[in-house]
Design a binder for these strands. Structure first.
Lengths: 119, 119
DNA sequence: TCTTTCCTACTACATATGTAGTATTTACGC
DNA sequence: GCGTAAATACTACATATGTAGTAGGAAAGA
């Protein structure tokens, strides 16, 4: 049962992974003002994340629930990357080639990564 | 006016980029049997691609239209990659790190890429 | 030409997603 | 204890996407 997260759901999860445990309000406040949605919008996303078993309620503070992640960032990233690579036929190499081509990645980045992964 | 393609739309485009010019039937036939959708489904996707200005009708053969791409694979890939990177905060380096971590990319791949981009 | 086949045009529909409003309940200060 | 502020629960709705059916017209064979 792989969990699929939408773009917005992922954003919420990122915040939750950072905070470890948070209320709807705290998460909403953590979103950049420019794109901060209505409180109930964040609430709706939490409801969906609960349904997807991506988060769960832990306790209550005042009359607000706190939530915590049920899935790791790593597992989600793995899935995202796999799906993305599938779009390109499953191979990472051409994607990285394109990253270099577009300047998203430099030779220095590559070397650093090589170093790091060698250890 | 950036063109957003869905997963399925992208698959159709891939085939069209390869064939250069093709009819709905030809594209449908080019899809792996396992996941080959109904003829009218492919037709619907073509209609949406037309709306999005991603393809256009060129001529008619028999009573079937032929289509050709209006956008390049490269421009679409660039967009896909950019959007994907945005999910991870816009930086490619952590994504590549994760590719290495998950074995999607090997040290040999990296070295080969380095070589290639150096020239 | 008549019939069969194939294609197009149009319509339909479920699910996912972004977005938020309304009604109801709960906790907290007074 | 009560009122008020804040949170929750529930509902709503538009757009995107995957998926395909039906009706009607055009091409091609008999």
């Amino acid at each position: 049962m792989p969990i699929n997260l939408s773009k917005f759901e992922l954003e919420i999860m990122e915040i939750l992974w950072k905070l470890r445990e948070a209320s709807v309000r705290e998460v909403q406040d953590a979103i950049q003002e420019r794109k901060r949605p209505a409180y109930t919008t964040v609430q709706t996303i939490f409801a969906r994340l609960e349904e997807k078993k991506a988060v769960r309620r832990t306790r209550k503070i005042g009359n607000a629930f706190l939530f915590e992640p049920l899935i790791t960032r790593k597992s989600v990233y793995r899935r995202l990357i796999d799906e993305f690579l599938d779009l390109f036929g499953g191979s990472a190499e051409p994607v990285v080639a394109r990253l270099l081509e577009t300047g998203k990645l430099t030779l220095e980045d590559l070397k650093a990564l090589e170093e790091r992964s060698r250890k």
